[in-house]
Amino acid sequence: MKSWLALIRPGDWLVVLGSAALVGASIPVFWQGGLADRAIIRQEGRIFAEVDLKASKQFAVSGPLGTTLIAVEPGRARVVADPGPRQYCVRQGWLMRPGEIAICAPNRVSVQIAGRTRVYDSISY
């Protein structure tokens, strides 16, 4: 062990510690920078509401089939109830990451999470 330590020169320690600090510092940059900060609720493709994901709120959006209930909580949002037949958007559960979207197509309502920067989802491509 000692012979291995002898191979590390003073500057090497500096590089190791500096890099470790950099890696540590990169964690919040990359794992929080893209945090969700808004939920965009659309009705018939037009923006119905744009909500900060800070407080808890409920939205009732009406569409051709009835009312879609959307819940917003700090850092996340979901479709609580939808009159659509297949319930895909409801079963998607909580949306937390920027770019995530739940589309209740039959009722023409969608909830999308947006972050600080605009992100694309696979649908964009």
Partner: peptide, 8 residues
Amino acid sequence: PRWFGPVS
């Protein structure tokens, strides 16, 4: 090289 070796 006195300060920075292969590790760096």
